[in-house]
Simulated scan of single mutants.
Amino acid sequence: MALLAISFLTLPAQAKEQNLGPVTHLPLPRYVSLKTDEGNVRRGPSLTHRIDWVFKRRDMPLQVTAEHGHWRRVQDRDGAGGWVHYALLSGVRTVLVEQDMIPIYNRPDPQSQLNARFELGVIARLGECTRDWCRISSGGYRGWTLKTNLWGVDDDEIRD
């Protein structure tokens, strides 16, 4: 009887920690990228809902906040969003540079060699991340920058 009571006590805490999508069973929220050059953003999760606007940047990072059938509710860095068909989204992780001329270093160390500088608004492919740094690549350049320079990766996210 004591074991049964303990399992009931631990289940709700675990369920709160991880919010999973009802369709994919993947974590919500989570980051994805736009697979196409254009993606219609609808007011609701079906083709009958009005198109509010169109995302027009391939590889743009988006955050999935809800799921319904073949539709995902997404938002961009400014919080603008709506419902997008899942076929327009990719699991490939990208980030948006949020500061102008951010330094890209050879290693996650500001004393290491400077490889490049990325402008505000650049979309970069996301690689591994430590507690404070992420490895990114864009335009043939790659290296490490502080996570605080990027949108599309969580503050506590670690990637190998």
Results as ranks from 00 to 15, higher is better:
S33Q: 04
A5D: 13
T48C: 13
F118C: 03
G127E: 04
V153A: 00
H68D: 12
S7W: 07
L150A: 06
R159Q: 05
P45S: 12
L4F: 15
Y141D: 02
R50E: 15
T36L: 03
T48N: 15
D100C: 03
R159E: 01
H70W: 12
Q99G: 06
L88K: 09
R131C: 05
D76Q: 03
P110M: 13
D160T: 03
E128R: 12
D59L: 13
Q113H: 15
L120F: 06
C134L: 02
L3W: 14
I51D: 05
T148P: 05
W133A: 00
T48M: 14
R43S: 11
Q75G: 03
N19A: 08
A2V: 10
R142F: 07
R72E: 03
L3H: 13
P61S: 04
E98N: 14
N115L: 11
E157A: 15
R125Q: 12
T36D: 04
R125V: 05
G81C: 08
Y86E: 11
N106C: 04
I136R: 01
V74G: 00
D155T: 09
P103E: 05
R125W: 14
D100M: 03
L126F: 07
H49D: 13
A15H: 14
P45E: 12
E67L: 13
V153F: 01
E67V: 09
C129S: 12
S137M: 13
E119W: 04
V95H: 00
H85M: 11
S7C: 05
W53K: 14
D132N: 13
R73Y: 12
S112E: 11
R73P: 02
W83C: 01
S138T: 10
L20A: 02
D109H: 14
A5I: 07
G143D: 09
P22V: 05
P45N: 14
I104P: 00
P103D: 07
W71L: 03
D156M: 10
L89T: 04
G79V: 04
V41D: 00
G39A: 07
V95N: 07
R93N: 03
L20H: 11
Y31F: 15
M1D: 11
L89D: 05
C129R: 04
F118G: 00
R43H: 12
A87S: 13
I104D: 01
W53G: 06
I104A: 01
C129T: 07
G121K: 12
Y86H: 11
S33E: 03
G82A: 03
L96N: 02
R142V: 00
R30S: 06
G143Q: 13
R131V: 08
A80D: 15
S7E: 09
Y31R: 09
G143K: 14
M1L: 06
L89F: 10
L120A: 03
W144R: 02
I6H: 11
G79K: 13
R42A: 01
D160C: 02
I6M: 08
D59S: 05
V122H: 01
Q18S: 04
V122E: 00
S33W: 02
R117D: 10
N19F: 13
I104F: 02
F8N: 06
P108Y: 14
A80S: 14
L114D: 08
T10H: 15
T65V: 12
M60G: 02
R73S: 09
C129P: 03
G152R: 01
Q63D: 07
L20G: 05
L47V: 12
F118E: 00
T94S: 01
G21M: 10
E38N: 14
C129L: 06
V95R: 02
